[in-house]
Design a protein around this nucleic acid. Sequence first.
DNA 1: GTGAAAGCGCTAACAT
DNA 2: ATGTTAGCGCTTTCAC
Lengths: 363, 363
Amino acid sequence: MRLEWPKIGSENVFTWSTVVTLFDVARTAGVSASTVSRALTRPDKVAVKTRALVESAVDELGYVPNRAASGLRGGRTHTFGLLVPDLANPYFAAVAKGVAERAREHQLGVFVVDSDEDEDDEPELVRRLAHQTDGVVLCSPRAPLRDVEAIAGRPLVLINNRIAGVASVAVDNIGGIDLAVEHLRSLGHRRIAYVGGPEHAWSDDQRRAGLRRVIERRPELEVVLLGPHRPDAEGGLVAAGVVAASGCTAAITYNDLVAVGLVRRLIALGLRVPLDLSVVSFDDTILATMISPTLTSVRTNLRDVGRGATDLLVNLLDTDRGGGEPNPIIDTSLVLPAELVVRESTAPHVSTIMPGTSTGAAG
Amino acid sequence: MRLEWPKIGSENVFTWSTVVTLFDVARTAGVSASTVSRALTRPDKVAVKTRALVESAVDELGYVPNRAASGLRGGRTHTFGLLVPDLANPYFAAVAKGVAERAREHQLGVFVVDSDEDEDDEPELVRRLAHQTDGVVLCSPRAPLRDVEAIAGRPLVLINNRIAGVASVAVDNIGGIDLAVEHLRSLGHRRIAYVGGPEHAWSDDQRRAGLRRVIERRPELEVVLLGPHRPDAEGGLVAAGVVAASGCTAAITYNDLVAVGLVRRLIALGLRVPLDLSVVSFDDTILATMISPTLTSVRTNLRDVGRGATDLLVNLLDTDRGGGEPNPIIDTSLVLPAELVVRESTAPHVSTIMPGTSTGAAG
DNA sequence: GTGAAAGCGCTAACAT
DNA sequence: ATGTTAGCGCTTTCAC
């Protein structure tokens, strides 16, 4: 290992002619390689003096451990994989940010793979990811069952999905639905449309289930289930006609994008939001505050979802037996709370029969 | 290596008791390890029969090469790093998607790191990234000079920045400014405000430079340079008063978010967009089509930016001498074209002096 | 508390 | 065209 200071322009720029290895550190510190390794990975197992020696050598040489080598020998790559259906989708991007953030705090590297919403590619991508990492986080998998099979028992955390025996983190869709419905109910709405998302979407299923439970509890309510619809503005545009004709005074949408499309078409149809129709969206992305009227929305801290998934994975990693022993099935399922952000798109229902009964007491 | 089929629930799930190695493949194929290695990395260097043998063994065992090991020995990790200031920012998310996409096509893994806009952390993050990858892509670096120093001559590609001797991909800000200005000019606007972004932002500098060039070419135009402003809706809100008082009939904003804030406050001030003031934004994110009026915007295909950067890096990797030799300085600088998407936020300027002269001929 | 030695899975000479 | 050998940078027994 030797340093060079070639002149580039008028600046000194240094480059390593070869990588600084643990052995180099050992030599400068005047100790053996294994001592350096210990000093770095289990500082308590080394004399304080020696540790100081090693540390200053590390600083002096600018040593950075080689993860590949450490992983090869130690069995841990200190790296995990994150698979998302679409990095450019603000929802997944927020989750990914949380994952990346927490990974950094845990000193883990994270391989990111974008499946581009292709459910058939997914299992193979997962398999490859699993083979070069210590574990994998799957965000909103499109083929969860096949993925779990492909991963062959390696540490795995699911986001926005639930499979028996697999750790997961999810948004509280049922609670979110409750919040949305109760908000609308307290505003006097009795007939509510749900503009659902795409078929087989896990969170859509959850929300429909939540709605079924709500109407059992609140017999005075009527819920009109619509969909499947595309999870974008187009989906909302398409749904608007049916919503307008449904006799509903309020609508809950699969996400912000759907709400945007819905509101736009509704207004084009001559309806006023929220005067004629109140709208509650899901996700509370940046869009919710950017459009007019601003959207009342059900939100969950998505960065926390990513962070939680990472923490769960780290737990799995710590308990992972590694070579061969089946891991204890840690079937931890974290559900992060939903909250309702009330904005301009919801207003009291002005009854056509009895004007003035808008802010009704409990039913 | 042996396989197990433990019963989980009523499903057969298989797990490897130990990882399948290249050696296992060699044994099942009845050849040596190096032959397998060759068959996999340089198929043409191996007899067709042998290759088939190896391939079927690979399939049978479900062998996946261990990148860490291959990197350790071969000097290439087949992995590179991507650093972005904020994954949750749709702009960077789009670039990241392009990078991830192209990386997959090149069969490269990508480590993603989010600097969280912290320019002081950046160089250290870059250094660490560089040490465990074959090269690094830096998207909109906040401390580009220090980053380049930290990377110590390893393969590097810059996105949205330009440093002599370093490969880069950028958006054509100057061309974008030209498009925006010429569009407004052709609509009859003569006095145009530029609502700029944050201080030291590279693309903001570029655009201001572009504006200076434009006014030399078009002496009939007046440009009012505003800012620095925050690159979000708040920035636009703050700028609105000055814009309204500036006597300008059109404004160009640093990005969509600024435009949203600007338009909102302008409307609150009693101005109509585009009737009283036309607005052109930069970036054309999803916001541009979601708000009302929809925004005329300067766009560049950001996924292509990411893809281009990845291709550039792969080129550098291929020419990288590896251990020690200084690399040939490949100072490739890719500039991706900007295009103008005309929407509702721009309209002809109705002259207060001579009504009817809105669609003027060339000056 | 520290050092010596072996070897993780793979590739790159060098033989054959 | 294929096999043999050595060793990448690190961690981990096992001695001392």
